[in-house]
Computed example of a mutant assay.
Amino acid sequence: MCLQHRALHPSEPLPQPNLITQALQSKRALEATCSSEFESMKKQFKLELNEKDKNTETGSLLWKVSDNGEPLSSITEGNENVSMQSIAKGVVTKVGTVDPVKDFRAMIAQNNVQEFGKVCSEMKMQINELLKQSFGKMINSKVIDCIRALREECCISNKPLIFNTFLEELKATLPIIHKGDFWREIQNADITLIANSECNSSSVTKDAALKFLQEQKDESDDNVIESPEEDENDLLNMM
């Protein structure tokens, strides 16, 4: 009906369907009979406009205390930028594969000095896992970023032995896992041992660190096994 009216009278408004209009309108007699009940319901169930607070919500609006028992009001006091999103992130407990550098630095920031070695061990394990699973330049660049982050944090925390031992072991392991070419990427990134010129507690000199970076172990030396020459008569006897 509406389509027909629009086709025949395009400039006129559409007619209102009588059945729908009647169903939406209440009966006068019913309104008059139930008027007192309607007024009672209005008083019992008042409609009020609830305006949303435009200010940033903080954890103190939902929780009274934090995980360690400290009142959240003291945590958020003076810091208006603390939002629900930052609180919901929680504490980083593991160096993951998505953004290992970010996880590593977050764990360093939130843990004490005694846990530094444990956090570095997690990063070293993640580096080894990424190397074993890497098949392209993208993963290799992530591994380089991880090694660089580990080196920087060891320098800052005055723990050069942790990184130097790891880099020496990594250099020896690369040919075994058929990743000898990765050492060239480490050379291009100029990542070498932490020298005593960078960290006083290091026992490695600057020249030794430079020599360590330039040296490269030939992968073929470890993987090529010389097979004894077989005599022609032995081959004939095997046939």
Rank of each mutant, 00 (worst) to 15 (best):
T33M: 11
T33H: 10
T33A: 10
C34E: 09
C34V: 10
S35L: 04
E37W: 13
E37P: 00
E37Y: 10
E39F: 04
E39H: 11
E39K: 10
E39T: 03
K42N: 06
K43D: 01
K43G: 02
K43S: 11
Q44C: 04
F45V: 14
F45E: 02
F45G: 00
K46I: 05
K46Y: 01
E48T: 11
E48P: 01
N50T: 13
N50G: 00
E51D: 06
E51A: 07
K52M: 05
D53A: 08
D53S: 08
D53Q: 13
K54R: 13
K54E: 11
N55V: 08
N55H: 11
N55C: 03
N55E: 10
E57C: 12
S60N: 06
S60Y: 04
L61T: 11
K64Q: 15
V65L: 08
S66C: 11
S66L: 08
S66T: 15
D67T: 15
D67S: 15
D67G: 12
N68G: 07
N68M: 03
G69I: 11
P71M: 04
L72T: 09
L72A: 09
S73L: 09
S73H: 04
S73E: 14
S73A: 08
S74H: 14
S74A: 05
I75C: 07
I75F: 10
E77G: 01
E77K: 13
E77Q: 12
N79P: 01
E80I: 09
S83E: 12
S83H: 05
M84W: 07
M84G: 01
M84Q: 03
Q85W: 04
I87A: 00
A88E: 08
A88H: 11
K89R: 15
G90T: 11
G90N: 05
V91E: 14
V91G: 02
V91D: 13
T93A: 04
K94V: 07
K94F: 06
K94Q: 09
V95D: 01
G96T: 09
G96I: 03
G96D: 06
V98D: 12
V98I: 11
V98M: 03
D99K: 13
D99Q: 10
P100Q: 00
P100W: 00
V101K: 03
V101A: 00
K102T: 14
D103L: 02
F104C: 00
A106D: 09
I108W: 03
I108M: 10
